[in-house]
Amino acid sequence: MTRQPLYPHVPKSRKTEPGLPQDELRFLPDSPEFMAETITCTGCREKLDRVFQQAIARAKGGK
């Protein structure tokens, strides 16, 4: 006789409530303005811009 699992596996999804404590948030949402602002605050804004623009140029130019 095949034994059935006592607790069938339920796949995780955004639709199910994982039973978080009341003071915990599952989703941490961010606006585009806030994201840009936090990157600027790291001091890496210029470096990120430069290094990715160079990488794009390399990738597109096949260098």
Binding site: R26, F27, P32, M35, L48, I56
Partner: peptide, 30 residues
């Protein structure tokens, strides 16, 4: 523009964010 779901350890990016590489990089770092 994007969110982090700590239950699934997943990042979700809005379609509008994905139309720009710069916004995508910003969102991913954040």
């Amino acid at each position: 523009a994007g969110l982090y779901d700590h239950v699934l350890e997943e990042i979700i990016l809005h379609l509008e964010t994905l139309e720009s590489a710069r916004r995508t990089v910003d969102a991913m770092v954040h």
